[in-house]
């Protein structure tokens, strides 16, 4: 498959994720000021909540497949910070997937911690890309984290896509409502 098409595909998905995150933030903030927006927020949450863990697992799965495609097929070697983001993203597929099947409330906290840590690394990686001197004054010839292997629309680099995925997972986890309590599970 054409590499440019695949990269563009993941960039479009990342953009869609960003749009959802922005809408969620607007609903969350606007809901505090406006009763109408609060109703929209509650309706959206009502609709998404039962599926949120599964959707978050799906987002993690797509991000994981994208990450593997970029390194194993497109031959973009993952840098040190990419590996830290992988460490956060890959387990989310299992943690959230199993949590969705078992309707396990505990998966929300574990997932949120992993996604939060991953998002922090993504933000640092974006800063290193933008300001390379934050990490070093020179480029490691093998694979510096400041190198942009992908840049769609002037801003969507690989850590930006990862951050979009982590942010969407966090939004979905915030919307998720456990249907089975930990006590019931036990």
């Amino acid at each position: 498959m054409d590499r440019d098409a695949v990269i563009l595909f993941f960039a479009l998905l990342a953009t869609a994720a960003q749009a959802v995150v922005v809408v969620a933030i607007v609903l969350a903030v606007g809901g505090r000021a406006s009763a109408t927006v609060a109703r929209w927020r509650d309706a959206a949450r009502e609709a998404v909540a039962p599926q949120a863990l599964g959707l978050a697992a799906g987002v993690a799965l797509v991000a994981t497949l994208g990450s593997l495609y970029l390194s194993e097929v497109a031959d973009f070697p993952p840098c040190r910070l990419c590996w830290f983001q992988r460490i956060a993203m890959y387990p989310l597929v299992v943690v959230l997937g199993v949590g969705a099947v078992r309707r396990d409330a505990g998966a929300r906290l574990t997932g949120a911690i992993l996604a939060g840590l991953g998002a922090c690394v993504s933000i640092w990686h974006l800063l290193v890309e933008r300001y390379p001197t934050l990490e070093s004054g020179s480029c490691d010839p093998t694979n510096p984290c400041s190198t942009k292997w992908v840049e769609e629309w002037g801003y969507l680099t690989i850590p930006a896509m990862a951050l979009s995925g982590f942010a969407l997972i966090l939004v979905l986890l915030a919307a998720a409502r456990p249907t089975v309590s930990p006590e019931e599970l036990a």
């Binding site: 054409d2 098409a5 563009l8 998905l13 797509v62």
Partner: peptide, 17 residues
């Protein structure tokens, strides 16, 4: 959403590498 992203990506990337 995933399918539309796939179709749009294939169409837009047809211009070449």
């Amino acid at each position: 959403v995933v399918l539309v992203a796939g179709v749009v990506a294939v169409v837009l990337a047809r211009g070449g590498s």
